[in-house]
Design a protein around this nucleic acid. Structure first.
Length: 854
DNA sequence: GCAAGGTC
């Protein structure tokens, strides 16, 4: 034997099938090793050679951090710059050792790894193990020139032989793109996961998951489910009305003969009851209905394409009630038992030389579908058209007959589906005729229709696709029908339902999230971590509180983190590496820097996510109180709306209570009053305005005492009395209406407060009256005394009138005395006279954010 | 204890 050729496939089954194709007369010997080695002799490059065909089992290596960075106590930010190592993936039996042994003194290595980017990467993992042991040859016959790549687009004899005759070299750029992907996924995933897990698990003991994970595939997957949940929550039903009309054939005397026929209104529905009633009256105004047209249309439902993984998973979930993870486990078992072909494939078209006849022959004795298969064999089957060849593996088909007793419950149901799908895919199309009858009552159009199946085609074997006849009476053109009933039926629009697992798979496929092999893993992850639960026989994925809070948190802090474009954006970068347009190190560096910055931003703003966690998972929140308390200081600091899942912070170190059931005119939020005690500051505030100031140039934390709303009874404009007495303060003294029965004036900037003595019963601001002292210009107050005081009501300026000044516990200095702050501030906001009712100092230039009162 | 991608 002049030379030895080592060939390596991605999995043992493929090594065997390709050997069967390439070994002369299909004759070869197999040695049992970590992965079987098939041996045969054949010609290669003009000489007889010994061929050894073995395989790896997927990736040879896993990427991981070194030991020092596998410590959860280090700062996760360090992970972005941490060193990584590749470790052998296999737990049972060393693949590396196997490759090293088998490559000893071989002349050639031919790589038959799957023809995708991952396969190209595995090529280089293999090369790392086989290169050393290869035979040294003289001259320019370098080892690298003898490591070759077979590129095949299907596992068929033609394709495999063609690949063997057109060997090329492995593509390092494609492999490097995968290396970059691995490193990015590892670093981003672990950094975010460790940070979140530690941050939230330390704070909340009642989270439903040990690990609060983040990943570029699992998080967008969860996001799909939460988006639908949000749509449902925010849905508001609308009433609509429709005309429900029934007619019947009539005899010569106008009597009803024949059953009632229900008609569909051409307008379907209207959203205005008044309009609907007009239509109803119009229709009722007619005595008869007239058939104006009858049409017969032929329709076709195409047979399905050949079966791929995603389609199998979707059917398993929606029709068999078996989750994708479980379906894959079962499919893999059926595959290793030889009942079906390789179950991980994107391909939906049969290879040209696929032996459909032999599969049909195998199945023709089957008790359930044997006769059907036999008929196809005898009468001829339709060679499938369409579908796509993804170049990976042939579609999923039955490989040998199984009877119901051979397989346990779910295995049988999956095998049953795969086989019926196969038979359906080579069956005729389903054909049916649809009859449409158009009927007019006055000027309104109605319709009724019937269907008749002309040829069941594939639905005869795929019984879940069966279409039943909808029989309709025969009508004649211009036939007059009797109107039996005209009713107005009210309905309501309804929200969408939660996404089914099958719909989630469709979305994942559409957005390129995960692969046929990993889609079930991602869905399984978000279930196991308790971010979603699978509900009902329709297997709908309903987000848990934890799942919802996570996604809402990302949306608040950095929406990119949960967008489905996360994956595709990174893929675009990786494509530059694969195509050789950019260097591996540069792309990796760029993406790592980007995500490190995102991580830092997320970490700095995690409080926004924490507000949601606090409202959902703190023990106080579980009592159902609307007012939640801070876990540390035990004071109420936040309001939480459990429906909107929004949290509003409030001023701390004080008391919060409902403010007389009053509402903010800007946003309809209920006002609350804040006070720090009977002799301290107090004011009403709107929780929304406090967190989202509605006017420009106003900082966060606005209470009503700083609000420039021109007409609201609680705003600064309508409650300010004079400038603050404290010299360094630029604030306004505001009448604190929340303070009754002990009336107070408190500054809206500093903590200066003055209280009226307890003989004062009521204080109000006199509308459009100001102190006559030009320098003062304060508001005029109306003071009422308690009945037992026998005092007449007073009216005057709090800065200039002695009698009023006397009523204050902390007295303002009388005008003319050189007290701190005198005269100051008066001119600051411009002349105030005549400006009441208009914002002072807070121009509404630029408009307000949610102003809706004017 | 963490990601996602292969495969068993």
């Amino acid at each position: 034997m002049s030379c030895t050729v080592l060939m390596i496939a991605e999995k043992p089954s493929l090594a065997e099938s390709i050997t069967k194709i390439l070994a002369p007369n299909g004759r070869y010997n197999t040695r049992k090793q970590t992965s079987p080695v098939h041996e045969y002799s054949a010609e290669f490059r003009g000489a007889m050679c010994k061929f050894k065909f073995t395989s790896v089992k997927g990736h040879v290596y896993n990427l991981d951090f070194t030991r020092e960075h596998n410590d959860w106590n280090i700062d996760p930010l360090e992970l972005f710059t941490a060193r990584t190592t590749k470790q052998e993936a296999s737990k049972s039996g060393s693949i590396c050792h196997h490759l090293q042994q088998e490559s000893k003194a071989v002349d050639y290595v031919i790589l038959w790894l799957d023809c995708d980017r991952e396969g190209e990467n595995i090529c280089f993992e293999v090369i790392k193990n086989v290169r050393q042991g290869m035979k040294q040859l003289p001259g320019d016959q370098t080892k690298d020139s003898r490591i070759l790549r077979a590129k095949f687009s299907a596992i068929t004899a033609t394709d495999i032989r063609k690949a063997m005759d057109n060997l090329i070299y492995p593509n390092e750029n494609e492999a490097l793109a995968v290396d970059a992907r691995q490193e990015l996924d590892l670093k981003i995933g672990c950094a975010f996961t460790r940070f979140q897990t530690k941050f939230f698990n330390r704070k909340y003991g009642n989270l439903d998951s040990n690990v609060i994970s983040y990943g570029p595939c699992q998080t967008p997957t969860l996001s799909f489910c939460v988006s639908r949940h949000d749509q449902i929550k925010s849905f508001s039903p609308e009433s609509f009305w429709t005309l429900s009309v029934s007619v019947a054939k009539q005899g010569t005397n106008g009597e009803q003969c024949g059953p009632e026929i229900h008609l569909h209104w051409g307008r379907v529905k209207v959203f205005d009851k008044h309009v609907a009633t007009i239509f109803q009256n119009m229709v009722r105004g007619n005595k008869e209905a007239k058939v104006v047209s009858i049409s017969f249309d032929k329709h076709t439902k195409n047979r399905p394409h050949a079966l791929n993984t995603v389609e199998l998973l979707k059917f398993g979930s929606s029709n068999l009630g078996i989750g994708p993870h479980e379906t894959m486990i079962i499919a893999e078992r059926l595959y290793t038992q030889g009942y079906i072909s390789y179950p991980r494939t994107e391909t939906t078209s049969y290879p040209k030389n696929f032996d459909i006849k032999s599969v049909l022959k195998d199945q023709s004795g089957h008790p359930s579908w044997g006769l059907y298969a036999k008929e196809l064999l005898e009468k001829g089957f339709d060679w499938p058209t369409g579908g796509t060849d993804a170049g990976d593996h042939p579609p999923i088909t039955p490989m040998r007959v199984a009877h119901e007793g051979d397989l346990s419950g779910d295995s049988w149901r999956i095998y049953n589906y795969i086989t019926r799908h196969f038979l359906g895919s080579i069956s005729p199309n389903l054909k049916y005729q649809k009859t449409n009858v158009t009927i007019k009552i006055g000027i309104e159009t109605f319709e009724c229709s019937g269907t008749k199946v002309l040829q069941p085609g594939f639905s005869a074997v795929m019984h879940w696709r069966t279409m039943s006849d909808q029989i309709m009476q025969e009508f004649n053109q211009n036939e007059i029908l009797k109107i039996i009933d005209v009713r107005l039926v009210e309905g309501q629009t309804s929200p969408p339902d939660f996404l089914t697992e099958s719909e989630v798979i469709t979305l994942m496929e559409k957005h390129g999230i995960g692969t046929d092999a990993s889609i079930p893993v991602h869905i399984n992850n978000i279930c196991q971590r308790n971010y979603v639960t699978v509900q009902g026989s329709a297997r709908r994925l309903v987000p848990t509180n934890l799942g919802t809070v996570l996604i809402h948190g990302y949306q608040k802090i950095d929406p990119d983190l949960s967008l489905p474009t996360m994956r595709s954006d990174v893929e675009k970068q990786l494509n530059y590496i694969a195509s050789g347009k950019a260097k591996y190190a540069e792309v990796l560096d760029h993406s790592l820097n980007l995500f490190a910055a995102k991580f830092k931003y997320f970490r700095d703003h995690v409080g926004q996510m924490d507000e949601l966690f606090e409202a959902t998972f703190s023990t106080l929140a579980s009592t159902g109180k609307i007012l939640t308390k801070c876990g540390k200081c035990k004071r109420p600091v936040r309001l939480h709306c459990p429906t909107c899942e929004e949290t509003y912070s409030l001023p701390s170190n004080g008391h919060i209570k409902d403010y007389k059931g009053l509402q903010c005119p800007l946003d309809d939020f209920g006002l609350v009053s804040f006070s720090t005690g009977s002799k301290d500051i107090g004011y009403p505030l709107c929780p929304y305005c406090y967190n989202h100031p509605p006017f420009e140039n106003i900082r966060k934390g606005m209470g009503c005492n700083r609000c420039p709303h021109p007409t609201c009874a609680h705003s600064l404009v309508n409650n300010e009395v004079c400038s603050c007495h404290v010299s360094s303060c630029k604030g306004q003294m505001v009448l604190d209406a929340t303070s009754a029965p002990r009336w107070k004036l408190s500054c809206n900037e500093c903590n200066f407060v003055t209280t009226f003595t307890d003989i004062v019963k009521g204080v109000s601001i006199s509308k459009d009256e100001y102190c006559e002292n030009e320098e003062c210009n304060s508001c005029i107050l109306n003071i009422e005394f308690r009945e037992n005081q026998n005092k007449k009501a007073l009216k005057g300026c709090v800065l200039c009138d002695d009698e009023i000044i006397e009523l204050l516990e902390k007295k303002f200095a009388k005008k003319g005395v050189n007290y701190r702050g005198r005269g100051r501030g008066r001119g600051r906001g411009g002349s105030r006279r005549g400006k009441r009712g208009r914002s002072r100092g807070h121009s509404r230039r630029g408009g307000s954010k949610h102003f809706k009162t004017q």
